[in-house]
Design a binder for these strands. Structure first.
Lengths: 242, 242
DNA sequence: CGAGTTTTTGAGGTGAGTCAACGCGTGTGG
DNA sequence: CCACACGCGTTGACTCACCTCAAAAACTCG
């Protein structure tokens, strides 16, 4: 379900805008629900201009092409950032977690869409005010710069994955990557197979088959969203450096 | 020529480090030649701490894993930034041009390599001094932030390309992208076919075949490094949004 | 329990990779 | 000045990893 950005549908391709099909999503989705704030180890004179906002699973946080009016910082939940082609092919460029900024854009328009994977709460900042703060507070500027740089590094990792890794290596890399922020060897995947496929540049079938292979090889134990890493070293070896 | 980072050699795979083969490169390459400064429309109290440095074609500007001691800003020429896997597979994550920064890293180690594609001149800054400046001058911080953000956007474009575009679309996207900074419809490609392949996540054979196809379709005229765009609209159409 | 959705599995097709040979420009030395 | 070697790019024949289409299985929720 969910009104997420159109993914790689083969039969249902989205040319321009098809009303009635993808409409429900933005409608029900783009609705902040309740105001929660449960951030922790962080800094900022940004705090003074923050508004707490919450999004339901599948809610559109920002849309490709919309005017860039806000900057968000995730206080809980997972967000997927994506780009799409005119015919509906979709590439998730990254998953963002607590502490990450959503909506970093040098232009006045968002060039990527962002959707809440599960329930998400964020701090919302007015873009204008942020820019004023950046021009005054080196602390804020440094914070944003640091985040932007690490996103850049992550993006380079992903380009290496997309350009040069096999399907098996991609899935293994993905699992080790997600595994790093889980404690222990029990991983709960918050996103669907479609999301994973759109993130790894594969099809859902290939993702499924590859995970089955990992299971049959005794590297992991999979049951839907739950993954138990049985042999972490082997998994990392198959990732060829994550 | 070339002591460039090992590319996708199938026969000659680079396990760890093969002396005698790739040695010549770093040796002759890592040699600043002459100090030139021909930058223009730009700002910065950075200027005060800049050292002008020049690199020969193929020179290693920075190496994966080296301690991050400097930040560079290109004053002329083209630089390729790349990541490699242990077995030698290489992904060029971006080409950088005049005004771009090389060496943006949040860690104290470079995570990507950078090589001069042609002759390159740069302004070199001590990393420590830059960090001090960032902590003091919002102007510098904003400049770096802006650049980092646009690199991030470019990276997202590239992820979409690598994850979801066909070979034909990749090559067309690449040509329109390069074409944008060339004036008129005559493009001079400063990089080799191998570089293009490593940038587009393809093989040199596929790049070659695809360009041949574009030529046979009357979209472009190719002769080695020179490309004449005959039908720009058609090229952009084949790029599916660049 | 049944309708809808997500995931898995199967069977077959294909776009890009692999391996191999050749052409072409450039530099070098006899 | 030409023979030769070398690096780069092109072309051809064949293979295969992943995609496509299709259906079954497993889960979710009313």
């Amino acid at each position: 379900m969910s009104g997420m950005a159109q993914t790689n549908t083969r039969t249902t391709r989205r040319f321009a805008y098809v009303p009635g099909v993808h409409d429900r999503a933005p409608t029900t989705a783009r609705s902040p629900i309740k105001a929660v704030a449960e951030d922790k180890t962080d800094i900022g004179p940004l705090a003074a201009i923050a508004t707490a906002v919450a999004f339901q699973p599948g809610a559109q946080i920002l849309m490709e092409g919309d005017p860039a009016e806000h900057l968000f910082r995730i206080t809980s939940g997972v967000v997927k950032v994506y780009r799409t082609l005119a015919d509906g092919r979709c590439q998730i460029t990254g998953f963002l977690f607590v502490g990450d900024f959503v909506g970093l854009a040098p232009e006045d328009t968002y060039l990527a869409g962002a959707v809440a994977v599960g329930p998400v709460t964020v701090s919302r900042f007015s873009r204008k005010k942020v820019e004023l703060l950046v021009a005054v507070s080196p602390l804020v500027a440094r914070l944003l710069l640091r985040r932007a740089c690490s996103e850049l590094i992550a993006a380079q990792d992903q380009m290496l994955l997309l350009g040069r890794k096999t399907a098996a290596e991609r899935v293994a890399s993905f699992l080790t990557q997600i595994g790093r922020r889980a404690d222990g060897d029990h991983i709960e995947l918050p996103m669907t197979r479609t999301d994973i496929a759109d993130y790894l540049g594969l099809t859902i079938e290939t993702v499924s088959r590859t995970m089955t292979q990992l299971r049959e090889d005794g590297v992991i134990d999979v049951h839907r969203a739950k993954v138990h890493v049985l042999r972490p070293a082997e998994l990392e070896a198959r990732a060829e450096a994550a």
